[in-house]
């Protein structure tokens, strides 16, 4: 690894000053798990690393207009163990419990995770299913971006040079909405998902689908929403076969990578299977 200057900052403002000063030569570090690996491999060689660990204002979980706000530096483990989060949505806890191992969850942060933009990560699908937004901060202010639209490409997000991701906001969950997160791990339990699905569903009094979200991980260069599946179900009186039929549509929405976790062809089929299973479980009264 190339050596670099490390700047420990106490606030977001300090970090933004350093980013402005060093431009492309600076890189933010939150938990460091991914960045360390990329630097160790020589893929990223910043001259300056801006360490956010002591920027306490970027840490913590709180209420936000009926929903919840998770600040960027909150570790996965803190999310998983937070009673706030559990009260807000137990599925979120379950999804975070599936990330890698406790050691990684103790170090890695939600903000770092999202900015790293690896499509195989666990948080994005469930956060997409819950309509999360992210708050991006820069020297000129803040902007709020829906998570759906945040990911651009492999390892690429809408966060521009001179900006940092400050927090994740999740809106209030309308009563009666159920959600689930399924992670398909045909190799080992500590692996990245071969395919994962975050889904949310709310049925009206007449049994029709009032609200549906389906998001997938490991299914494309970025985490994605399965809009065709959603559209096929929205407003319908749902049945198992109808869900299976809608799940077929996901094949055209995914664009998976061929890798050791499965060929693109296989992942496309698994996207169908797990989309169907996730939605069926919600229809059958599963989920939280």
């Amino acid at each position: 690894m190339r050596t670099f200057d490390y700047h420990a900052v106490g606030s977001a403002a300090e970090a933004l000053d350093l980013l402005a000063q060093y431009g492309e030569d600076a890189h933010l570090m939150a938990g460091g798990t991914s960045l360390m690996l990329m630097m160790e491999q020589g893929l990223i060689q910043p001259g300056h690393v801006v360490g956010l660990r002591s920027a306490n204002e970027l840490r913590g979980i709180g209420a936000s207009s009926g929903g919840i706000e998770i600040r960027a530096l909150t570790t996965h483990r803190e999310v998983e163990r937070s009673s706030h989060v559990r009260d807000y949505c137990p599925t979120l806890v379950e999804a975070f419990e599936r990330i890698a191992t406790i050691r990684i969850r103790n170090q890695a942060t939600i903000g770092g995770n999202l900015v790293h933009a690896d499509p195989a990560q666990d948080p994005p699908p469930i956060l997409l299913a819950l309509d999360a937004e992210v708050v991006i901060q820069s020297k000129i202010g803040e902007r709020t971006v829906p998570l759906d639209g945040f990911f651009r490409d492999y390892f690429e997000t809408v966060v521009e040079e001179g900006e940092l991701l400050a927090s994740v906001r999740l809106p209030a969950i309308v009563a009666g909405t159920k959600s689930t997160y399924v992670k398909f791990l045909p190799r080992t339990e500590d692996d990245y998902a071969t395919l994962s699905v975050g889904a949310a569903l709310r049925l009206g009094a007449d049994g029709s689908c009032e609200h549906v979200r389906v998001a997938l991980g490991s299914a494309a260069p970025t985490p994605i929403r399965a809009r065709k599946v959603e559209a096929a179900l929205q407003g319908q009186r749902l049945t198992g076969p109808m869900i299976d039929e809608a799940a077929e549509l996901v094949r055209d929405e995914v664009d998976p990578l061929d890798d050791v976790r499965g060929s693109a062809k296989y992942k496309r089929e698994m996207a169908r299977v797990w989309t169907g299973r996730a939605l069926r479980s919600l229809l059958d009264g599963g989920g939280k």
Binding site: G32, T33, M36, G51, R53, I102, R103, I104, Q107
Partner: peptide, 13 residues
């Protein structure tokens, strides 16, 4: 008190 991977953690942390 929290277990971490010493191979992924910068010493400065």
């Amino acid at each position: 008190g929290d277990m971490v991977s010493a191979c992924l953690m910068p010493a400065i942390f």
